[in-house]
Design a protein around this nucleic acid. Structure first.
Lengths: 197, 197
DNA sequence: TCTAACTCGAACATCATTGTTTGACAACCA
DNA sequence: TGGTTGTCAAACAATGATGTTCGAGTTAGA
């Protein structure tokens, strides 16, 4: 869990201020997911407020990004915590991949914006949780013989990761549809994880 | 083949000028591969020349990037043309992946810089050649039954592509070594391409 | 209804980057 | 050796982004 330490968290705000803060965060999330270099001006316009109003609620561009990232981390942790990763490892990883895909699709290039605006420690922390979840599941599958053990675990995690990102690229390019994506990702990653005989 | 249409191609230059042009292009290639947003100033410094000298040889940042990209495209075409893509499709794609890896590793994020600085048509043209090569080989493998046919061909190409990029990320992060990369890529992509029994 | 909180555009300072100009200096090469 | 070509640092203008300030107007909410 992250602490919401910025100005936006303060509860003693007027109703319209709270509404605008929410609109700014939402607009920033969507805008940064599309283009990590989007300007503060464009974010404010997308939120339907003036630039000055935005700076009234967030000290800086970096502070806004930090807030957006913190929410994304919380959201991610929540969605992944709700998952049932027990049972057959193949089915469990299909559920994990589906959730990862949904989150990747939602947050897009937010991570790129974060990398440019936030200290490396914060970035590291954001990646740790999802990775250890994937790692634990793959290790369990390896122990039971359901997954292959002849490739480095870090590489298998990377393959899952880049397959999901590849799906986002292919969707953006029009090569696949949104409906196809989860099945393609699952089929592909399972093909890599399945032991050869 | 691309035409080298910019100032740098003119042959009527003094020896030191030609040397500097070469140094600038080389430094720009390396710098842009590392950071697509690198400034003209940093490129000039990396090349050991002043910024004014750089602008004396290239009209603009975009013109320099175009030159670098054109060379990269030529280099890529040459390397891929030298490949033997005949014979066993599994071995042929291993050779193609190895070359793709080498080129991806060499040119890194140059494509990102190109996307930001060049018209979309130029970007499209740069991607077309490598993709049709991969597509032709996969289709040949599918026809012979060596590769699976139950996934969209565009997706299979995307998987190969993102696996190579994932390897670059993993290498940059220190999760794998440069020596491991080709085998990991080949094993992974072949696992996806191999028909399930 | 009254006031404190909020919004907003316009204007400002600052910074980084691109691209140009100038003029003095150095190197190539015929 | 002499004229052309090239290099360079410093200074300049232009652009675009971030962040701040001001003042006038609006709105929430007690």
């Amino acid at each position: 869990m992250q602490t919401l330490g910025t100005a936006a968290a303060t509860g003693a705000k007027r109703a319209d201020a709270r509404k605008n803060i929410a609109a700014i965060i939402e607009a920033a999330t969507v805008s940064l997911a599309k283009d990590p270099n989007v300007s503060v001006n464009d974010i404010a316009k997308a939120a339907g407020v003036g630039r000055v109003t935005l700076y009234g609620h967030f000290d800086s561009r970096a502070a806004l990004i930090r807030e957006v990232v913190n929410r994304a981390i919380d959201d991610t942790d929540r969605e992944l915590n709700d998952l049932d990763l027990e049972g057959d490892p193949r089915e469990a990883i299909a559920r994990l991949l589906e959730a990862t895909w949904r989150l990747t699709h939602r947050y897009g290039s937010l991570v790129v914006a974060a990398e440019a605006a936030l200290p490396p420690d914060d970035i590291h922390d954001a990646h740790v949780q999802p990775i250890i979840r994937m790692r634990g599941l793959i290790e369990r599958g390896q122990a039971s013989g359901a997954f292959r053990s002849d490739l480095p675990i870090a590489w298998l995690i990377e393959v899952a990761h880049s397959t999901v990102h590849g799906a986002a690229d292919a969707l953006h390019r029009g090569d696949i549809t949104e409906a196809q994506a989860p099945a393609l990702i699952t089929d592909t990653v399972l093909a890599v994880l399945t032991p050869s005989r």
